[in-house]
Amino acid sequence: MDNMTQFILVLFLFNCLFLAASSRMLHLIRLVAVQGFLLGALPLVIDIGFIHFESGILSLINLVIKGTLLPYLLYVAMKKASVKRELEPVIGYSFSALAVLLFCGAGFWIANNLPLPTFFAKTTVATSFTLLLTGLFLVAARKKALTQVIGFLTFENGITLFGIGLMRHHHFLVELGILLDVFVLVFIMGIAICQIQREFSHIDADKLTTLDDLPENSSSGDVTAKEASK
């Protein structure tokens, strides 16, 4: 059982490394789906023998929503927006992989310095920090809106993993609410990506600069004027 959990955590770390190093959208979506599966499976593996009914159900819902439904939504958004890969990231792929390694080191360092009771808790919290930081890194270092959503999901998975590591669960209703929120969020983000594609004919979030207070790239008033005169 213990080997199994450690194995899953190692898979998480590899997953982060691949996320940072791959450019194909389909690949990224698959990696997030794998994260969802691992996240759903982890509590089941830990709790074998004394599995609680409610946490088992939650784990299964997690598996379904994060492992299948969300990646499917992202896949649809990808098809509609017809993007295949992240072409010019802000930070290159090899350097991104290096950054994830650094995050991993930082995660283990932080977890080591926290007053955590067991070896299991330490490794899980370290992995969760790696996921959290990788997610934030992806949001900042990638331009496409879709990749940013994937970064956000990784970040969210990191938080959930942190909860599992501490073995403190919120209550059934709250966990369900969190899952529902994430689901609706990705749903709305998917729709937004399609609309951005239609309006701007690209989904590069760094080019969304019509609204700004700093004079060099501000054109907020002009946009309304242009649209009005159209």
């Binding site: 937004a192 969304l208 019509t210 309304t224």
Partner: peptide
């Protein structure tokens, strides 16, 4: 409009 879509995206993310 374009700008409202941009505002919504920033708000969401």
């Amino acid at each position: 409009t374009k700008s409202s879509l941009e505002a919504m995206w920033k708000y969401l993310l």
